[in-house]
Design a protein around this nucleic acid. Sequence first.
DNA 1: AGCTTAAAGCTAACGCAAATAGCTAACCGG
DNA 2: CCGGTTAGCTATTTGCGTTAGCTTTAAGCT
Lengths: 195, 195
Amino acid sequence: MPRAGLAPAAVVAAGAALADEVGFANLSMGLVAERVGVRTPSLYKHVDSLEALRRGISIQARHELGDTLVRATVGRSGPDAVRAFADAYRRWVLDHPGRYAATVRAPDLDDEEDRRAGDEALRILLDVLAGFGSPGADAIDAARALRSALHGFASLESAGGFGLPRDVDRSYRFLVETLISGLGADRAGDGAGEA
Amino acid sequence: MPRAGLAPAAVVAAGAALADEVGFANLSMGLVAERVGVRTPSLYKHVDSLEALRRGISIQARHELGDTLVRATVGRSGPDAVRAFADAYRRWVLDHPGRYAATVRAPDLDDEEDRRAGDEALRILLDVLAGFGSPGADAIDAARALRSALHGFASLESAGGFGLPRDVDRSYRFLVETLISGLGADRAGDGAGEA
DNA sequence: AGCTTAAAGCTAACGCAAATAGCTAACCGG
DNA sequence: CCGGTTAGCTATTTGCGTTAGCTTTAAGCT
């Protein structure tokens, strides 16, 4: 029997591709094995378990998303950077639904690499928002607001949550502009800003 | 052997309670059976399958969330209604993480009841936003924006996605006020408003 | 080249959860 | 009191994750 010449990274990559096709939750060792041309138990020579494979996909996906976001926003600033960030974010999620589902899993706090991959997108976001004029607003709050909104929209859209025929692109643009407008406004004294 | 006096609704209710404890994804027929004091195969006299049980939990949870939101917002309007809606939403999600995960599943488009339960929250949201002065903004866009933001925040928080020690309540208030402020602003000509 | 050895692949088998089959006993209408 | 319906049971099947243990490949050393 000829060897497949497999490596852990190849298994993770195949798993990520498969997750985009069948859904992250439907990933199974059998499917991955078939995809890489090997019998199921052979996979255990490269990954410890299905759980470990999922974690590997999650970490890889977060890096890919991070790279995409950096590339999309480099050289831009202010509202323009936010728009570019938002567009790249949504595009990537739609193109990689399985990988995206993987990124959402709560990082294992005991796993250094896992935690760092999770912080990556947040750091990029803070850079994008740096110098964005929102008086009295903490940068962390702004980053969380933007991340929540984009994540919420993307995950609802990806899950088919928008039933109505209203144009979804348009709704997304509305969301992004609403946030940009809201982040730019001075709302001193509303109880969330200041101090 | 004495009978347990079970009914489909009781099984679904037990499943929902269990989902909040162990997570919607970790729900199993065995756990539910143990909870209601019956052997696993007996459950199939009341629900067709695990998948059907999940759907039942999902529908019930959506109704519960809808009721909660209606009760929280009745008698209020404008920004005040939005705040009440947002607070009730987050509170419910934190109190019922398993049920909330169930509500996020994409409704089965072939199932009338499932689809209607999914529309319920949206209708409430449209009522809350009715008459909210956002010139040039389509109500559907505004509803999607708010829903995305709240869902995104709640699901990230519920999944433990906010690693940093920054106060989460504060970030939530910031998000809600940002949206209210953004929705109230006139942004004619930004490409998303103005029909 | 030939020998040794780590590891990549295989088949076989186990454990667990979902689901089905078929039996038994409890309640409900007469 | 009696017959039918049905909730519950045990036993069994199927499918997937995982482990055990064997075989063969390929790489490294002399």
